[in-house]
């Protein structure tokens, strides 16, 4: 069954099932967890909890990625 996540406002369909956790999603998207802040349905998820945070169909995920410079 297809599953959908809304990532940064855009719907993304996963034909072969959702990544089980937020960590798995970041790996799939090749995003370094050390430089991303994540919110799920408006709630901040701390980085230390990424591996335990389970993903469900239709979740709204904001991934805010930081690049260096200031």
């Amino acid at each position: 069954m297809n599953a959908v996540l809304k990532i940064n406002g855009t719907e993304k369909t996963f034909d072969d099932g959702l990544p089980p956790t937020l960590s798995a999603l970041l790996s799939k998207l090749q995003i370094d967890a050390a430089t991303v802040v994540a919110e799920i349905d408006g709630e901040i998820i701390e980085r230390k909890n990424f591996a335990q945070t389970e993903l469900k169909d239709q979740m709204g995920i904001e991934l805010i990625r930081f690049v260096g410079g200031g």
Binding site: A34, T35, V37, I44, E46, R47, F66, V67, G70
Partner: peptide
């Protein structure tokens, strides 16, 4: 948040929000 390094930016934003 006025840091230079990406991981420090992440740390500050995550901490203020959580």
């Amino acid at each position: 948040e006025c840091f230079d390094r990406a991981d420090q930016k992440q740390m500050l934003v995550e901490t203020v929000l959580s």
